[in-house]
Design a binder for these strands. Structure first.
Length: 202
DNA sequence: TTGCCGATTACCT
DNA sequence: GGTAATCGGCAAC
């Protein structure tokens, strides 16, 4: 029986809708035949050309953010602060650069490998933050542009059977700066009772 | 070509 | 709570 995975139509949604629907889904990275996976417990929507906080604001298109313009279901990985990677799920329609930032995971499979990748850190320090989860899963520039619906290196799966998400919280996005109205819009979603969410609920 | 600062994290006081 | 680490994109000179 084939591994279930989220397919193209699932990703052909606006970023706000997809950000909410990705909560509880499982991000899976396969490294050397071994599976590392975690349940998405926190996400943020970036609405594309009209969103001042988006890398694609105003239609900006460069080699860095080219993946945002690809088909829905593409992985967009960017490098920031000179040392960190963050990963996004591209959505909406091809050419409309909307994406969902994956901000935190509850570790599920391959925890030992994640611990090693994170320099021995464990528990809530393993995957609670966009750069932390990329380090734990081994996601970097080499996976930018990967097709999540076909890749044998990274994909997404529906929530595990029996998974109980609990109440969903919403807030402003984190780290986007406060100079404009887009900074205060509630485009972050998280599972309220999950300890792996990246910071205290505002 | 220079300079500023970022969708962050870890470590210090 | 404050800030250094460390690179690349982009606006301004």
């Amino acid at each position: 029986m084939a591994t279930p995975r989220l397919d193209r139509p699932f990703f052909a949604l606006g970023a706000a809708t997809l950000a909410r629907r990705l909560l509880g889904c499982v991000l899976v990275r396969t490294v050397g035949g071994r599976r590392r996976a975690g349940v998405i417990v926190e996400s943020e929507a970036y609405l594309g050309v009209r969103d001042r906080a988006s890398h694609a604001f105003g239609g900006r298109r460069t080699p860095r953010n080219e993946s945002m313009y690809a088909r829905p279901g593409t992985l967009y990985v960017y490098f920031t602060y000179g040392m960190h990677f963050c990963c996004n799920v591209v959505c909406a329609a091809e050419g409309d650069p909307q994406a969902v930032l994956v901000r935190a995971l509850a570790p599920l499979d391959g925890v030992d490998a994640m611990r090693r990748a994170r320099g021995g850190r464990d528990g809530v320090d393993l995957c609670s933050g966009p750069a932390r989860l990329c380090q734990a899963l081994g996601i970097d520039r080499a996976l930018d542009g990967e097709d999540l619906t076909r890749s044998d290196r990274v994909h997404l799966e529906p929530p595990p059977p029996g998974f109980l998400p609990g109440p969903v919280g919403r807030s402003a996005r984190i780290g986007v700066g406060s100079a404009h109205e887009w900074a205060t819009r509630p485009l972050r979603w998280f599972l309220r009772t999950n300890p792996h969410v990246s910071r205290a609920r505002p």
